[in-house]
Amino acid sequence: MFHTRYLSWFHAIAVAAGLLLISSGCVRRRMTVRTNPPGATVSVDNQLIGTSPAATSFVYYGTREIRLEKDGYRTETIRRKVKPPWYQLPVLDFVSETLWPGEIRDERIIDVEMVPKAVEPTENVLGRAELLRSQAVGQ
Rank of each mutant, 00 (worst) to 15 (best):
M1V: 13
M1P: 11
F2I: 07
R5Y: 06
R5K: 03
L7F: 07
A12R: 02
A16C: 09
A17N: 05
G18N: 13
G18W: 11
L19E: 13
C26W: 11
V27G: 00
R28N: 15
R29K: 15
M31Y: 08
T32Y: 14
V33C: 07
R34A: 13
T35Q: 14
G39D: 10
V42Q: 07
V42T: 15
V44H: 12
Q47S: 12
L48E: 09
G50T: 09
G50K: 04
G50W: 13
T51S: 12
P53L: 10
P53A: 06
P53Y: 05
A54D: 02
A55W: 11
V59N: 14
V59M: 10
Y60F: 07
Y61Q: 05
Y61P: 03
R64T: 02
E65K: 09
G72W: 07
E76V: 04
I78F: 11
K83W: 06
P85F: 00
Q88W: 12
P90Y: 00
P90Q: 01
V91E: 04
L92N: 07
D93S: 11
D93Y: 00
F94P: 00
V95N: 03
S96M: 08
T98P: 03
L99Q: 00
P101T: 10
G102A: 02
I104L: 07
R105L: 15
E107T: 03
D111C: 09
V112Q: 07
E113K: 06
M114I: 02
V115T: 06
T122K: 13
N124Q: 10
V125F: 12
S134L: 14
Q135T: 07
A136I: 14
A136L: 15
V137G: 15
G138A: 03
